[in-house]
Design a protein around this nucleic acid. Structure first.
Lengths: 143, 143
DNA sequence: CTTTGTGCAAACGATTTGCAGGATG
DNA sequence: CATCCTGCAAATCGTTTGCACAAAG
């Protein structure tokens, strides 16, 4: 339980978001997982035990959190929109076999020289996506 | 007209794809543009003068070309699937103001050390996405 | 001629929206 | 107590599919 109720409430309030049970639950859920779930996965998780939220509300909560800058969207597969509560700059690794996505800490990829691009372009930020196979899949489908 | 009819026909045949007017047109269209269009944009372009192809056919042509490895999908915005006939490895620049996407030649970004990742991960390839503002937008909304 | 592609319209799945009732600040 | 949120159902949008006919090899 790495995240305190108070911290979450605090974060929401700072962003002028009303603290409702549903919105709180969505954000807490995202903070507690690192698997970049989709809206539906969050919904399923929230309603695992007892009904907690509806589809429409999860979508709107995610949208609110996104606009507030508390979560980011991760787009690495066609037609799949994932969410991530880790908003600090970082990169991603995607396993081509099982599809899992894991974070790569920002400083694990260094020395990236983006300075040499066409002059006139104003570079603001960048992101690296690494594709390959995770441990498990590398073993299973090894080669 | 940088691409010859014969080359296109040749490329399709090599991939065991039947050469139909529609499929030819879709591929030729992609080869002639660098703006990473969506399926709908390709369709509109093909039917600009006279009806040339249908929605379903453009979708299936793109799918066939994609599976054959003649085009790639580019996913930088939520819910927008773009296509690119440049299948050589390269990076992308996306203007946050006008949304245009342009290619960054592979060798324009060097010295990327992907070796330091968690051992066990088998890295196959990577891609860099750079976000910022293009010349035009940098001027207009300058800061 | 056998196989594959085309085009229409209907089907689909993820996301969004309209709206009435309910909760938040 | 004014504003914003929830949840339901209907609407939307891009993409896919079923099928009859046409074209490619």
């Amino acid at each position: 339980m790495p995240h305190h109720t108070d911290q979450i409430v605090q974060a929401l309030k700072e962003k002028q978001l009303r603290v409702t049970p549903q919105r709180f639950a969505v954000y807490a859920n995202l903070l507690d997982r690192t698997d970049h779930p989709t809206a539906e996965q969050v919904l399923l998780d929230l309603n695992r035990d007892a009904p907690m939220s509806s589809q429409a509300t999860v979508y709107s909560s995610l949208q609110a959190l996104y606009k507030a800058g508390l979560v980011r969207e991760v787009l690495l597969e066609e037609g799949v929109r994932r969410y991530d509560a880790n908003v600090a700059p970082h990169h991603h690794f995607r396993c081509e076999s099982c599809g899992t996505i894991e974070d790569i800490a920002w400083n694990e990829i260094r020395d990236l020289s983006v300075g040499g691009l066409r002059p006139g372009l104003r570079v603001e930020r960048y992101e690296v996506t690494v594709y390959g196979h995770c441990e498990t899949c590398a073993k299973t489908y090894s080669a």
